[in-house]
Design a protein around this nucleic acid. Sequence first.
RNA 1: UGAGCAGACUAUGCGGUAGCGGAAACGUUAUAGUUUACGAGGAAAGUCCGUGCAUCACAGAGCAGGGUAGCUGCUAACGGCAGCCGAGGGCGACCUUAGGGCAAGUGCAACAGAGAUAUACUGCCGCUUUUAUGGCGGUGAUGGUGGAAAGGCGAGGUAAGAGCUCACCAGAGCGCUGGAGACAGCGCUGCUAUGUAAACCCUAUCCGAUGUAACGCCUAUUGGUGCUUGUUAUCUCAACGUCUGCUCGGCGGAUAACAAGUAAUGGCGGCUUGAGCUUACUGGCGACGGUAAGACUAGAUAAAUUACCGCACUCGACAGAACACGGCUUAUCGGUCUGGUCACAAC
RNA 2: GCGGAUAUGGCGGAAUUGGCAGACGCGUAUGGUUCAGGUCCAUAUGUUCGCAAGAACAUGCAGGUUCAAGUCCUGUUAUCCGCA
Length: 122
Amino acid sequence: MLYTEILNDNKDFLALYKKGRYVASKYSVIYVRPNGRPFNRLGITAGKKVGNAVCRNRAKRLIRLAYRNSEVNMPVGMDIVIVARAAICSIKSDEYCGYIEKYGLNDINKMFRSFDVKNKRI
RNA sequence: UGAGCAGACUAUGCGGUAGCGGAAACGUUAUAGUUUACGAGGAAAGUCCGUGCAUCACAGAGCAGGGUAGCUGCUAACGGCAGCCGAGGGCGACCUUAGGGCAAGUGCAACAGAGAUAUACUGCCGCUUUUAUGGCGGUGAUGGUGGAAAGGCGAGGUAAGAGCUCACCAGAGCGCUGGAGACAGCGCUGCUAUGUAAACCCUAUCCGAUGUAACGCCUAUUGGUGCUUGUUAUCUCAACGUCUGCUCGGCGGAUAACAAGUAAUGGCGGCUUGAGCUUACUGGCGACGGUAAGACUAGAUAAAUUACCGCACUCGACAGAACACGGCUUAUCGGUCUGGUCACAAC
RNA sequence: GCGGAUAUGGCGGAAUUGGCAGACGCGUAUGGUUCAGGUCCAUAUGUUCGCAAGAACAUGCAGGUUCAAGUCCUGUUAUCCGCA
């Protein structure tokens, strides 16, 4: 991945859930927060509720694929965590990629701008 | 042809495009990049057992605690497997089986019933006496209760009865024969001994603890903290710590101050060449063993096998390695093969 | 990776050494009390079959031991928790 590192630390996850903004949908929940670095950091969560190990792995793969496909259009300098939901196992990858390109990108950009405005005011 | 039994194998296939993981080669000061081959399972799962490996402790003994339970073998080991024995089921192929001991001791057996591990309500019989009831004695055949009533059933016997005697059957002990053994067969003795050990327990046998986040190596920096070593001071010879829960016993004197070293964090190793795999021959009824040849075939650290397209068909189940291996158990769409059995029909 | 606990009516929650399971409380339904409601009192309340009497099945699920299992043993499913 081009501008992206892997978000690894439990502290960062917790901070995101507390202070970040989020968009929920049927398949996933996206949390976003600016990190003040020249690259993005991506974390993926697939909890026990999603399904068995095969399901969880598939969810993670789909999310990584979708992120890779639309990475070019993303803003830079964000922490992003995507939480998988149970419905993601039963759909094709096309559907999820399409969803991310159509709605997810929009939402992320919106949220990113809203953070920007806040920072300028301060 | 139908039904049924046992065992083995397999786990959609092929092609294209893009992508992921570590490895090798090329390349670069170094990144980047390019190419090549490789890249989840029969259960990878549950974690129910057993091993290896690593560390800790080693001075051992006893008790406690836990596992196993027909015999003989196989194995690194096992609670696994194979063959056999006993018991039970099936017409049969075959299947199931925690299958030592209650004839060492203790406990428990509700309700019902006279009585539940030893007695006597109704009976039956004998003797006695106020002759219509009581007393004494014998009896466990009769009645009902119960899961179970003192081996079963028949005959003899008796006042009535009773293994009291006898035949057959079941059980126990002893002897002989066969077998490696579990056990089987035969004979004799004897007269009986309720069930429960998946109740405590007894017998035989096995078991140290912790798990690769173990553990080893390298490394940044002040202070505090833990550990180790050295020096000094104080206290004393029985407390404290440790060795498995306890006891005996063993080992370390203890506390404070100062100095030096070390650990944490991160990285690397551990990490995959193995009680392994394939093929051939061979020993054994079999589990399994032996010999020879060949190949190297996942090793990640938020964690890699995917996505899409096309074709084919029977339309694709359960499901994803995290130190490794041997089993067991559970989940599973189907398909293929092999060997027995029964029924019907034909020859 | 390692280890532990729990499961009983609609809900909470009993049932001691195996011995009549559905105690007790809440809830629900019906009736009474009241002008009306609440409170209070009484009765009923697992499922199936049955006119009824009653019978069968019921302690997460599947087996086993026992005369008898919620309780003992084995396997399994779900939920919850702990350690690192």
